[in-house]
Nucleic acid binder design. Structure first.
Length: 425
RNA sequence: AGAGAGGUGGCCGAGUGGUUUAAGGCGCACGCCUGGAAAGCGUGUUUCCGCGAGAGCGGAUCGAGGGUUCGAAUCCCUUCCUCUCUGCCA
């Protein structure tokens, strides 16, 4: 949710920025400002009425104390009338406030100035490319065939116990997955991120805090008996650690990393592009989250991009970095860099990380602020990124490092995995 | 899951319907005092919203949400959480 003050003071700039999402936000913003005006006017009226009622009540108290019961009775009647008024005003005010809130929820984050205008992923800007695409041996296979060949992942078993999109990892497949998690956590820790373990179920307040709610509840699994959601990413619980918090400026930046499974309904997805590990309902991910001073958030974003890049380079995977265009940018993000790994056997890019600066958009919902000395609290900036999402990294490793008689394990993973090759027999 | 006790400002802690304008203490900030400091003294110190150029004024806020009342931290209802005991359990 964009801070209202920003919308008031920089209406044109925000509208301009939003146009990069292909959104004609002008009328929307005007409507919000009108609703804001209405709310403020009602607030002023209500405050005045309540102030009057407060004065009267105090007077009544004093009259009673002085033993002037009759005069007090007369004032009571007046006071009761004020109460009636304030009740009506209060109802109007909360309706107006709700309407404003709802309208604000509809506005996506304003893209950063560096975000290119564009409709969809075709308009994303490639900002870097690295690693070497392999020359695959004769008879190279996509990862889902490799997974079957070497008995690493059993998709059908997952279907039996849960449903499509819930794979069962076995043997070296499971071990490799665990190795990756630990490798990422270790690297993130070395880079200054503090490891945290957080709940995998969150309440609705947390969903609102990071922007999964309202309107996108269909993307999360929801429990039937309790008002809880399975997390679609560790971003939700980790960022919400700071909901309703006022930090000291000296506590910034906050840097956290967390491993978690992620649950996504992915309603409406189908076809060849979602085969194998390409798109799942449950997958593992290691996330990095930062809370930053507004003046340093873009510097922090660059640092996160550099860090994620170093992970892919350590693994030796061919990758590229994209700056997302307005049309492809997530609802809550101001600037996002996506990382993609080249899937040699599928001959396509697979997204393995998304690193974003949300500026004050999430902080505004979260009421996440910081205080510099004796200054008034102000909204912090939040950022997060995957470092990294497991399944597609696994797919990339299996496909890119396959050889005629086995699969080579990246050197940095060998100490974690306990083996350097996957082969038959 | 059952029974009981609780939830008050940055922290501790008083407060059973009306000078509570939330006592008192600690912490913190500023000032006085001092050669400098400590002590001492004084002032200030929740957050959000509205009005205002500002000083400031007003409203809300005692876990959350409703209610009773002219008036609620205080009484009633709902709900969340914490602690103790019992039960269950990795």
């Amino acid at each position: 949710m964009l801070p209202l003050q920003l919308l008031r003071e920089q209406t044109d700039r925000i509208a301009q920025a939003l146009s990069k999402r292909g959104l004609d936000a002008g009328p929307m913003l005007e409507e919000i400002l009108r609703k804001d005006q209405e709310r403020r006017s009602l607030q002023a009226q209500l405050d005045e009425t309540l102030a009057e009622a407060n004065r009267k009540s105090k007077e009544i108290g004093e009259l009673f104390k002085a033993g002037k019961g009759a005069e007090a009775q007369a004032l009571k009647a007046e006071s009761a009338q004020l109460k009636e008024q304030s009740k009506t005003l209060g109802e109007s005010l909360s309706r107006a406030a709700d309407a404003l809130q709802e309208a604000l929820y509809q506005v996506p984050n304003a893209p950063h100035e560096s975000v290119p205008a564009g409709q969809d992923e075709a308009d994303n800007e490639v900002v870097a490319e690295g690693g070497k695409r392999p020359d695959l041996p004769e008879g190279a296979m996509p990862h889902w065939e490799l997974a079957r060949e070497y008995d690493l992942i059993d998709f059908e078993l997952g279907v039996k116990i849960t449903g499509a999109g819930f794979p069962v990892y076995k043997g070296k497949g499971a071990r490799l997955q665990r190795a990756l998690i630990q490798f990422f956590l270790d690297r993130n820790t070395e880079a200054g991120y503090t490891e945290v373990q957080v709940p995998h179920l969150v309440n609705a307040d947390s969903g609102y805090g990071t922007g999964q709610l309202p309107d996108k509840e269909g993307q999360m699994y929801e429990l039937k008996e309790d008002p809880l959601y399975l997390i679609p990413t560790a971003e939700v619980p980790v960022t919400n650690l700071f909901r309703d918090e006022i930090l000291e400026a000296s506590q910034l930046p906050v840097r956290y990393t967390a491993y978690s499974p992620c649950f996504r309904r992915e309603a409406g997805s189908y076809g060849a592009h979602v085969r194998g590990l390409n798109r799942l309902h449950q997958f593992d991910k290691v996330e990095i989250v930062r809370v930053e001073h507004p003046e340093r958030s873009y510097e922090a974003l660059d640092g996160m991009v550099a860090h994620v890049k170093s992970l892919l380079e350590a693994l030796g995977l061919p990758y590229r970095i994209l700056r997302l265009c307005g049309g492809d940018l997530g609802f809550t993000s101001a600037l996002t860099f996506d990382f993609e790994v080249w899937s040699a056997a599928q001959e396509r890019w697979l997204e393995v990380s998304s690193v974003s600066n949300f500026e004050a958009f999430q902080a505004n919902r979260l009421k996440l602020r910081f205080r510099d000395g004796n200054e008034k609290p102000q909204l912090a900036h939040t950022l997060n990124g995957s470092a990294l999402a497991l399944p597609r990294v696994l797919a990339g490793i299996l496909e890119n490092f396959q050889e005629a008689d086995g699969i080579r394990i990246p050197e940095v993973l060998v100490p974690y995995a306990g083996f350097d090759r996957i082969q038959l027999g």
